Simulated scan of single mutants.
Amino acid sequence: MKAPTLVVWGKQDSIIPVAHAYVAFQKIPNSSLHIFERCGHWAQVEYPRKFNHLVTEFLA
């Protein structure tokens, strides 16, 4: 993958553990990583304003 990539994860994700986020970040060139504290699997639902701001900034 060559495109800039934003990896977003919830620290308390019980479906896909946060360790996978760190692996993705390490293996995807030109990636950025954001871990939401006190967040499960649905960062976009649990923190919609912060998530939208993060994505908007990334895409700008």
Rank of each mutant, 00 (worst) to 15 (best):
S32D: 15
C39P: 01
V23H: 14
L59Q: 03
V55S: 05
A43R: 09
A24N: 05
S32Q: 15
P48S: 09
E57L: 13
K27A: 06
V18E: 07
F36P: 07
I16C: 14
Q44T: 10
E57C: 12
W9M: 00
E46P: 00
H34C: 08
P48T: 10
R38D: 15
L59C: 02
W9E: 00
M1P: 08
C39V: 00
H53V: 12
I35L: 11
L59F: 10
V8D: 08
T5P: 13
V18T: 13
P29F: 01
F25E: 14
F58N: 09
W9G: 04
L33S: 01
E37G: 10
N52Q: 10
N30Y: 13
P29H: 09
K50R: 11
F36K: 10
N30Q: 15
H53C: 04
A24Y: 08
F51P: 02
L33N: 01
G10L: 05
E37I: 04
V18Q: 03
A60K: 15
A21V: 13
A43V: 09
M1W: 09
F51W: 11
Y22P: 14
K11R: 11
G10I: 06
R38G: 06
T5Y: 13
A21W: 07
P17H: 12
P48G: 14
L54H: 09
A43D: 03
A3K: 03
V55T: 10
I16T: 15
E37Y: 05
I16G: 07
S14P: 04
L59N: 04
F25L: 05
P48I: 06
D13I: 00
V55Q: 09
H34K: 13
A21L: 07
K27P: 03
H53S: 14
Y47I: 11
P17Y: 06
Q44S: 12
K11V: 05
H20L: 04
K50F: 09
W9A: 05
M1I: 09
A60V: 11
H41T: 01
V23A: 15
H41A: 05
F36H: 12
K27G: 01
T56S: 07
P4E: 12
V18C: 14
L6Q: 08
C39G: 01
F25M: 05
